[in-house]
Design a protein around this nucleic acid. Sequence first.
DNA 1: ATCGTTGCAAACGTTTTGCATAAGG
DNA 2: CCTTATGCAAAACGTTTGCAACGAT
Lengths: 177, 177
Amino acid sequence: MPDSPSPKTEPMAKTEPLASVSVSMTPLARYEEFLQSRGLRNTNQKKYLLEQVFNRHEHFDADQLIDQLPSKGSPNYVSRPTVYRTLREFVDAGLLHRFELDGRSMYELNYGYPEHDHLYCSKCRKLIEFTCEEIVKIRDEVARAHRFRVRDHRFIIQGVCDECAKKRSLGRRQDRV
Amino acid sequence: MPDSPSPKTEPMAKTEPLASVSVSMTPLARYEEFLQSRGLRNTNQKKYLLEQVFNRHEHFDADQLIDQLPSKGSPNYVSRPTVYRTLREFVDAGLLHRFELDGRSMYELNYGYPEHDHLYCSKCRKLIEFTCEEIVKIRDEVARAHRFRVRDHRFIIQGVCDECAKKRSLGRRQDRV
DNA sequence: ATCGTTGCAAACGTTTTGCATAAGG
DNA sequence: CCTTATGCAAAACGTTTGCAACGAT
């Protein structure tokens, strides 16, 4: 993936130098800088997970990620709690973006990946990305009017995608908002 | 969740006439129409919950609602499962709007209450409403471009509210999301 | 007399925790 | 060494379900 210029406003002030160099850093480099700045350690599990996560270009949840990892006997096995702990750390480091869908957490790349929002089909559960610069403008405008410090936003349009709309009558799936 | 064969038809499909008269109907009237159209029954529990819910003008989650209800010995006691079942029915009836926040479902009035979106403070967990017509325009435009049938949307701006920003140094709370 | 509804208890799926051991710096 | 990280098992959390009894139409 190309390093698109999207230095998202950074979670916090702890890592001042990051913003300026972020475009040229690999996710690994940035992660290591984050770990150092916090006195955290880079373990084999974390390295392996970072690799797996950045091989994905789609959104995923913890279970989907775990399903793709080696199972309990195998070399690179990572336990479920560690996956959760590490995903949280990736979010803290600004590498991943998290949002909630149908009661569980979804993750997606937040580094070297253009900012976007989603359409969510309640029939097939598909997430469709779209980009729209106006949204960020509106967001910042609204926030300014409320003296609110924006860290992030989520904009999800729920409904039915074209495909599902066509095979309407067949659909068996339950809608959940 | 067992696959109920019942097509949980979207709120709108079944009840075409509702839209035109909705402004003049009370929530109760609309709810009763909804129940009739589906062959469902109006019980004391449902009536009482509708009353309680429409006394609130804020967002709430199931627990907050339950906390305000009579406890197990008392006259109007409603069990936890029934609260959940009924809230879902209110959503189906178009009376409430549901969205997710920090892993739990939040509800707010969706009937006789202007459409709006939210700012969410990750320090104090406060939800601040705002209205912005452009958002709906953008939403519909994006959806049209993707041949997507919109049912709803959620737009939440996350960050830190003015109050919390002022007492920054004191707050020790962990940010989540 | 139906058939939806209730309350209970128990299950559910996702995420988190306590703790003893392992391992990075 | 010191402290963070890991894996395990178990808990926590919000929510849902199976079931027998109840109650609305």
